[in-house]
Design a protein around this nucleic acid. Structure first.
Lengths: 233, 233
DNA sequence: ACCTGAACACCGTTCAAGT
DNA sequence: ACCTGAACACCGTTCAAGT
């Protein structure tokens, strides 16, 4: 048994206006750092607490539970999205910029893909973005339910596009597979479908980032074309 | 201490040709039952083992780990998808049927949404469906990378559409919130955006299943229109 | 070949207690 | 008001041992 160190108000550091306590903001930022560095599965309350030099259970003063923390984190990153100004451009440019802005955020934080199907997004940043999209589509001429449908079509396309973009790389990162062996695995899995393999090989022959960007642009243009047509009619 | 029951080869049931052992198929089916009934978070190896009258660790003979089990489960449900025959209909009908088939599977197994961003889909059922979509788009006239882009656009739209459809109801189910209080929460969260609230209220005024179906049909028609246009040009 | 149980190294969360 | 540590009820997974 070692003796306890002497401690009293006089030996202890002053409180200094609560500058050293935990903040919800601080917690959220630290969580994002862990998520960016190690992925969704690696975030635990204990690890997060340790990173902040606090006990895991201290977090529960600032945050009701882990799911609520994830909601905060989820909305925080939507704040990074650069939203276009619907007043300064045509609706089509707005839609285009909106979709690319969303995509960029998810590519920067791939763990978002694992949260999309888990949490509803009703935080302030998500709502701000939703309102901007709505406004752009309203100015374009959509009214009533079609205003919703049009917005849903754009965001649906973005979510659905980015998920497969991200799921491979983040699965590979979490279990650290090498990409060559993964490609090989797909090839043997698809042995019955030579045409599918041929397609995968042509796809893989291109620079990944570039071909994905084109893939995204192609689909987005389809969606926007469809919206435009519905507007004219 | 209670005495052990007498047991020997003679009192024990015969082996009967290994009819009573666990099967991979059996395990996968039981897992789906749990998932359908209680959702993704409720599935544990221990619970699954118990349901099958076995120890949790027995499962590891048939399955490498939980993630692999989820991959099996994931692919298994894609087997339920009714895939259209691209030879018997125009490509647009095929695309339409394909998208609706996918959507139906996810709506029947909402926990799929939580897996989309987590697991790549390269099981046999997923590949069979992918090949069919590819074939339909090839017959339509898409070639090269555009064949991929077109397929990706359709599946992206379906995934992205169904996620928000499902995430609310499954979040509500897991924590059993009542829908009225959730709607109220959204309303107060969006207090700064009256137009957004107005839209949400008109949306909520309709029969949910019907308005979602229309939402889906609207966006899908946009995507297909866009594809058609790219085909003609 | 297939299954078991004990054990390990984790989880999220509660709560009485401290300052 | 904020933080701590011990404790509870779970996890997924490994592995020696059984049949």
């Amino acid at each position: 048994m070692t003796a306890k160190q002497f401690a009293s108000v006089w030996t202890r550091e002053p409180r200094q206006g609560k500058a050293q306590g935990l903040t919800r903001d601080q917690i959220v930022r630290a969580a994002i750092e862990i998520l960016d560095a190690e992925g969704l599965a690696a975030l635990s309350m204990r690890k997060l607490g340790a990173r902040l030099g606090a006990g895991a259970t201290s977090l529960y003063w600032h945050v009701a539970n882990k799911d609520e923390l994830l909601e905060l984190v989820y909305d925080e990153v939507w704040g990074e999205m650069s939203v276009p100004d619907p007043d300064s451009a045509g609706w089509r440019d707005t839609g285009w910029a909106f979709a690319h802005g969303m995509r960029k955020v998810i590519l920067r934080h791939p763990w978002l893909a694992g949260l999309l199907g888990k949490l509803p997004a009703i935080g302030p940043n998500a709502l701000r973005a939703a309102e901007l999209l709505r406004k752009g589509l309203h100015q374009a001429g959509f009214r009533g339910l079609e205003e919703d449908y049009a917005g849903a079509a754009i965001t649906a396309f973005v979510f659905g596009s980015v998920i497969p973009e991200v799921v491979w790389t983040s699965a590979a990162a979490e279990k650290n597979y090498d990409t060559a062996s993964m490609r090989e695995a797909v090839k043997t899995a698809a042995a019955d479908y030579p045409d599918l393999i041929a397609r995968a090989e042509e796809y893989a022959a291109h620079e990944p980032a570039a071909v994905r960007e084109m893939n995204f642009a192609f689909g987005l243009a389809c969606v926007l074309d469809g919206l435009e047509r519905r507007l004219v009619t």
